[in-house]
Design a protein around this nucleic acid. Structure first.
Length: 222
DNA sequence: TTGTGTTTTACGACCTCC
DNA sequence: GGAGGTCGTAAAACACAA
């Protein structure tokens, strides 16, 4: 449970009363001066439990959390500067009643957390940008589809009109000139290829319907 | 209470810089 | 070569659901 650790207070007190309480653990590391396996670490405890009420002389010191106040001070210091020069490290250590090694380790871990947080934020930002791009792509895709549809309708309308013109001209004395012109002018849409979607020119000017005279013009503008 | 996931403290290996 | 950095990980401490 979240018992505002009596234990922690004891340990803090101990650590302040015995500022060099950590060095005794160093010999354990000295043991490892024998050729160590590369990149693999020991499983032994570097710190162990201190018996409550004990003087720490025969007990192991367990790993303990730093007090809120210690963490607060360290955070302030980290806020000023993420790197830790030895002078500042020693000053902080003595101010907080910690071993300078602890201060160094705390800063190492704090930098790692900071880096992770930054990466996480960056990831979130990029993810949002990506999502927006995907949405915009969908919108553009549907716009393209819509425009294609309109284009197709326009083609069909042109075809219908052309067929009517053809029908009218075949029954009129001026028909030949109109149809010849219709057959030789460039496509209405310039570069656009009429019939590219499967339509063809074969029936372009064929119309079963007949609209007499220039009535088709009214039809076109209505 | 216990199992499990997360956070915090600590360290070894390795790298870089002066 | 030593100091101090990163990286990866162990293990204690903690939070919380079942």
């Amino acid at each position: 449970m979240n018992n505002p650790n009596v234990d922690d207070h004891n340990l803090l007190l101990i650590s302040q009363l015995y500022p060099n309480v950590y060095p005794p653990f160093v010999p354990q590391q000295a043991e490892e001066s024998k050729p160590a396996p590369r990149r693999r670490r020991r499983k032994s405890k570097s710190v162990a439990v201190v018996e409550e009420g004990g003087d720490g002389s025969n007990g192991w010191f367990r790993k303990r959390k730093l007090s809120d106040e210690q963490v607060r001070m360290l955070e302030i210091s980290f806020g000023d500067e993420h790197k830790l020069e030895s002078e500042r490290k020693d000053r902080l250590a003595s101010e907080l009643g910690l071993d300078s090694r602890q201060v160094a380790v705390w800063f190492q871990n704090r930098r790692a957390r900071y880096k992770n947080k930054r990466l996480e934020d960056e990831y979130t930002k990029l993810k949002n940008v990506h999502e927006n791009v995907v949405v915009e792509k969908c919108r553009l895709d549907s716009e393209v589809l819509n425009l294609k549809e309109q284009l197709y309708e326009a083609e069909r309308e042109i075809q219908r009109l052309a067929q009517r013109v053809e029908g009218a001209s075949s029954n009129s004395p001026i028909s030949s000139s109109v149809s010849v012109e219709a057959n030789h002018t460039t496509p209405f849409f310039g570069d656009y290829q009429i019939g590219q979607d499967g339509d063809c020119y074969e029936n372009l000017f064929y119309s079963p319907d007949y609209i007499g005279g220039l009535e088709w013009m009214d039809h076109f503008t209505s």
